[in-house]
């Protein structure tokens, strides 16, 4: 509808933002690609020249590569499963009229405001510590031997911590979606003889499809790169070394920037594969 003049003006005004964003993303990407073809060891001689695809071959043939991809996918999948299922249930619960609704809703969002490092430390020391943790006390109360969460159930522990952080996000988006459901549809379902479970399955869940898709896509973007939770708890041991963490170790612990950069490129490829799969599976929910 806009006139030609208004359109060119709009382009001009958007230009700074576009250029800034482009620079922001393009510069690191180009630098990563540049370093990935170099043998670059900052504390052991610095820039030692081009090496071709050596870094790529070394990263992929390392024994820790595939386990790290697996750990990444398990964590992302586990967190998605827990947050979506519990998110839907919590949203249903919070949608019920109840006393103190406002306060309860604020409490539910609260974990989202806690920094990942802090929440991971709180979980590690207050809940999962095998001696002083609340879980340890709970286990002892029932006469069981306390579980060493971070070593015996390391992946699950990480999933638990990250889920706790992301549950509020899922709940909030799903709650607003539930609230936008036309009440008359539920009443029609009631008159049509659908018991509560059938109403949930046939009316509420399809209505939530779009919101669930958005939750899954946004969370995946952030979950692929979780780092702090692993750094302050297991340090990548006990099978919790994700691809992100592996790259970190290559760059900072082994001081091999070239190898780490090659890993970074693999991470980009992995993210794109995951995104492609997700769009195939849930993307169709987005067009109505």
């Amino acid at each position: 509808m806009a006139t030609l003049h208004a359109r060119s003006a709009a382009r001009l005004m958007m230009a700074p933002a576009v250029v800034l964003l482009l620079g922001w993303m393009l510069v690191p990407l180009v630098m990563t690609l540049y370093f990935s073809f170099k043998r670059y060891l900052p504390l052991r001689g610095g820039d030692l020249g081009w090496t071709g695809f050596d870094n790529y071959v070394r990263f992929v043939t390392s024994s820790s590569f595939w386990p790290s991809v697996q750990a990444t996918l398990i964590i992302v999948g586990g967190v998605l499963l827990i947050t979506v299922v519990l998110g839907v249930l919590l949203a249903l619960l919070l949608d019920q009229p109840m006393w103190g609704q406002g306060i309860v809703r604020i409490l539910v969002i609260a974990p989202f405001f806690v920094m990942p490092t802090v929440s991971a430390l709180v979980w590690k020391n207050m809940f999962m510590d095998p001696v002083n943790g609340l879980f340890a006390h709970l286990w002892k109360f029932f006469g069981l031997a306390p579980l060493e969460w971070l070593s015996q159930a390391s992946l699950f522990s990480i999933i638990l911590i990250v889920s706790w952080q992301w549950l509020p996000f899922a709940t909030l988006i799903l709650l607003t979606a539930i609230q936008s459901l036309d009440r008359e549809q539920l009443e029609a379902g009631e008159i049509d003889g659908a018991p509560p479970l059938a109403r949930f399955r046939h009316i509420i869940l399809p209505h939530l499809g779009q919101a669930i898709t958005i939750v899954i896509l946004i969370q995946t973007i952030f979950l692929l790169s979780i780092f702090a939770e692993i750094f302050v708890t297991t340090q990548g041991s006990f099978g919790t070394r994700t691809l992100t963490y592996l790259i970190f170790q290559r760059v900072l612990e082994s001081q091999n920037v070239g190898l780490g950069s090659a890993g970074g490129v693999y991470a980009i490829i992995l993210a794109n594969i995951v995104a492609l799969f997700l769009m195939r599976i849930v993307g169709k929910n987005l067009d109505t």
């Binding site: 036309d182 008359e184 549809q185 009443e187 029609a188 379902g189 046939h202 009316i203 399809p206 209505h207």
Partner: peptide
Amino acid sequence: FQSYALYPH
């Protein structure tokens, strides 16, 4: 119903 309350999906 006034809004018809059809199931949109």
